[in-house]
Design a protein around this nucleic acid. Structure first.
Length: 407
DNA sequence: AAACACGGCAACCGCCCCAGT
DNA sequence: CACTGGGGCGGTTGCCGTGTT
């Protein structure tokens, strides 16, 4: 390709900017604005004798001269935010920078490459996947062992059934797994090579008065969702994001509240609203807004038998039948997670899910976003200004199976 | 004191996307 | 529809200061 056209000009300087050059560029942009960057060197060259190409001027302005830049070292909070955002967005430095006022993508990229990556590795976390290093090693080993046919048939193996579902909630070591010292986490074999979505963004139910539970249950989710956002990560096919968006048309205040919280969540916007290629999927038939309080009953299956949870009867609403929601057509062609067929009506109640999944909801901030990371340690990290739960890969896999039945 | 290693950082390079023609 | 140029982005390079041997 060669150098950019604007740099073919003769006598254009390269390398570090001198204070004099900074002053020339600053004076020019202060008085005239930058406008078309390619014209900056022409005009600034005439007016101030600046001998730089447009690209160089743009970079210098954005990364150094811009008046709204925050100087100095990154705070611990900023570092944490970068790590968390990187887990969601990958190497989309500009999008990460958009969430950190006064910081540039270049700055963040440098920090990541020089410091944060090492810190994560020291903690035993792979900086690319944000998963435990031992888990990754095991996944890779397993993938190498899988014959091609097995890989292509993995989804068939995960077709919904009580036993399979139960297995998904089983964290006990796989007897066939490769032992790794000091690693007590064993990935879910059926999903390791088909994971396409690494983040699942689920609105919180902190304000779900009367529904019980301080986290979003399947039934609540199922009731309130009529929109899905998928945010493919072009840089990392295994780090896509998915969001269940609550109904905005439902008559109940819970859904409105959830939507309001979603809209005020910077995390949500960074993941979906500002992310390129985000697809919002509106089902052709929205979910009817029935009596929320009526959805108290809920059946769940296990290896032995189905049983009912507490609550009154629930004859009208169980899971939304997948035929009522036309997500499946789309999702079938989007992510293997949702290629599962609607085969059973296994549903878990809140306590069952909470217990089985080991969620320990000890959030002490009423308005925070919580991330359960990929490990089974239930480590939580908090964001400000949001009120949502983000479940990542492993947990999403479990959710997905359950949702797969309804989609 | 000199050589070397390392980390932080600024800037460049190459590519992609998109609007205009 | 194809081409072109500008803007933007992520990867990479190389300089420089500091610490270590």
């Amino acid at each position: 390709m060669g150098r950019h056209s604007c740099c073919y000009k003769q006598k254009l300087r390269k390398g570090l900017w001198s204070p004099e050059e900074d002053e020339k560029l600053l004076n020019y942009i202060t008085k005239h604005g930058h406008g078309c960057w390619s014209s900056v060197p022409k005009l600034a060259g005439i007016l101030y004798g600046l001998q730089r190409c447009g690209k160089s001027c743009r970079l210098r302005w954005i990364n150094y001269l811009r008046p709204d830049l925050k100087r100095g070292a990154f705070s611990q909070q900023e570092e944490n935010s970068i790590i968390e955002l990187h887990a969601l967005l990958g190497n989309r430095w500009s999008q990460i920078a958009a969430q950190l006022p006064g910081r540039t993508d270049n700055e963040i990229k440098n920090l990541w490459n020089s410091s944060l990556k090492k810190k994560l590795r020291q903690k035993g976390i792979d900086p690319n996947t944000h998963q435990p290093l031992c888990e990754l090693a095991e996944i890779n080993d397993k993938d190498k062992q899988l014959p091609a046919d097995d890989k292509s048939n993995i989804l068939k193996k995960t077709s919904v059934g009580s036993n399979e579902v139960k297995n998904l909630f089983d964290d006990t070591p796989n007897p066939n797994s490769i032992p790794i010292d000091n690693c007590n986490y064993h990935p879910l074999e059926n999903f390791t090579s088909t994971s396409k979505i690494n983040n699942c963004f689920i609105p919180s139910s902190d304000h779900m008065v009367g529904l019980g539970g301080s986290y979003l249950s399947f039934q609540q989710l199922n009731y309130g969702i009529n929109n899905i956002a998928l945010s493919p990560n072009s840089n990392n096919n295994n780090n896509n994001s998915l969001c269940f968006i609550p109904s905005t048309s439902g008559s109940n205040s819970t859904c409105s509240q959830m939507m309001s919280e979603l809209n005020s969540s910077t995390m949500y916007h960074s993941m979906f609203q500002t992310a390129p290629n985000t697809k919002h999927i509106n089902p052709s038939n929205s979910i009817s807004s029935g009596d929320v309080d009526g959805i108290q009953n809920w059946e769940f299956g296990n290896n032995n038998a189905s049983k009912s949870s507490n609550g009154s009867s629930c004859s009208n609403i169980n899971f939304i039948d997948h035929e009522d929601i036309k997500w499946s057509e789309y999702l079938n062609s989007t992510t293997p997670f949702f290629q599962q067929q609607h085969q059973s009506s296994i549903i878990y109640n809140d306590n069952e899910v909470k217990q089985e999944m080991g969620f320990i909801n000890n959030r002490d901030e009423s308005s925070s976003t919580t991330i359960w990371n990929n490990s089974n340690s239930h480590h939580q990290q908090h964001f400000e200004g949001a009120n949502s739960d983000i479940y990542s890969n492993k947990d999403l896999q479990r959710f997905s199976l359950a949702f797969g039945q309804t989609l």
